[in-house]
Design a protein around this nucleic acid. Structure first.
Lengths: 249, 249
DNA sequence: GGCGCGAGTTAACCAGAATCAAGGTCCAAG
DNA sequence: CTTGGACCTTGATTCTGGTTAACTCGCGCC
């Protein structure tokens, strides 16, 4: 597990133009900047840094100061906290197109969680000063940030609900159904397959379960004829049945 | 438990002036509007409605549309969700000076939780249109909203951490210490007392415990000589010792 | 090939917390 | 004063999920 390190893109001091252009192209795709005109993007690009990190790299620990936020271009990042006894709880698995660290940035406080690459990743780091400048300049940009934070909050409340009101079995079934929803076709019926985005241990922690318990429940669901397990691929044998099972338990 | 009902302040159509003035005075104290000049407050007051609700009143249910946010002037409101089986989980107990419902307002989605008055309450309801107008007009107002949402998010993450990494005992000890911190003198030592803001059952739910389990743990803590229980008043016999107990468990 | 390693599985056992079922206490209304 | 209800406590029992530990499987590497 390598220590924190920022593999910057090659300096490119000699030819800054194409490098900046490439960055702008990347920026144009991120939801927060959707519809920004080129001039705005260039302004923004000043504070943006591309990072390539290896699997296992810790981007920041709890307590580290925050200088901006991150956006994942490819790969996966896990956000987690570790208790004093060393056990870890994964709060979120960040996937391409998603960003993290905004809330802490706006609070001017150190990180409360740690972030670690689950795979080799390509990231953008957006410095907070360009965000703050843009906020002063453009009220609609503020609106987007507010919308983003609200959305995040909403999501987290749903997580709290899941953790406190649902059993392990229900959480797993819910997870599988959601996962199918984002990766599969919209109106899927009957037999569909879901590929787990990362190791079972990590997903178990995300769902507030131990790896062992997760494994057991998958086994139970398989025995009940609801799913088939094949490594990281879960075959949902009858998605309608799984949905109704979700209701009952 | 009375159904939802909005006890508006008397119409005051004949003398709108003093009524508006009184509202402005209330508004001037809320953190979000701190430092606003009178003209801004008046503009804001158009969308503000005072509400007096009785204990037990449900302000909104999950699924209700959201037309603005609420601020508590006096009394307590509980935010909770109810599972399909009817069991309830309290997410937050809102106290005077605090507000709720902003995130949902910015998302233009229905409420995901329900809000109920734990005591007779005085509230302000701020309509979303005046908030949105002010956001377009004043970037610094946006900043405050962003700061508020970030803070809320931060808090919720701390809750998730507590729920998933700490035992019931630890959660209760942590709660008592926090409660002491906000109600007691800053540098308290030795013996101090904390008054629970509401019923033990509600607090138990807030901490993700059953009433029974909560009661038992209080008993255990009392037996261990850490606290004394006298109805809703908890005497912390030695706050230093409780703090170190918090570390160990 | 054999070694080591990480991920996953399985089973036996255990603990923390929920559930169920009585009571107890206090207080306000009849 | 006594009746009922809200709130709380207590004990017995059950259950969910965590802990520990052994074992398997696949894979990269010497």
């Amino acid at each position: 597990m390598p220590a924190i390190e920022c593999l910057e893109t090659p300096p490119a001091a000699a030819t800054p133009k194409p490098e900046a252009e490439r960055l702008c192209k990347l920026l144009a795709h991120i939801p927060l900047l959707d519809g920004f005109d080129p001039a705005e993007l260039v302004r923004f690009a000043r504070g943006v840094r591309e990072q390539n990190v290896d699997k296992g790299t810790v981007l920041f620990h709890r307590g580290d100061p925050c200088h901006g936020f991150h956006l994942v271009l490819s790969g996966q990042i896990k956000l987690a906290f570790t208790s004093s006894e060393g056990q870890e709880k994964v709060i979120e698995i960040i996937r391409p197109g998603q960003s993290f660290g905004e809330a802490v940035m706006f609070m001017e406080k150190p990180y409360v969680v740690m972030a670690q690459a689950l795979t080799d990743c390509k990231l953008l780091h957006i410095a907070k000063n360009v965000v703050f400048e843009e906020m002063d300049r453009d009220p609609s940009f503020c609106r987007r940030i507010i919308a983003g934070l609200s959305h995040r909050l909403h999501h987290l409340i749903a997580d709290v609900e899941t953790y406190s009101l649902r059993s392990g079995r229900e959480r797993i079934v819910g997870y599988l159904l959601r996962e199918e929803e984002i990766s599969g076709e919209p109106g899927a019926r009957g037999r569909v397959s879901v590929r787990l985005p990362t190791s079972k241990g990590t997903i178990a922690s995300r769902l507030n379960l131990t790896q062992e318990h997760f494994s057991r429940i998958l086994h139970e669901l398989a025995e009940a004829g609801l799913i088939g397990v094949e490594g990281r691929t879960i075959h949902i044998l009858d998605i309608e049945k799984l949905r109704t099972a979700q209701m009952q338990y």
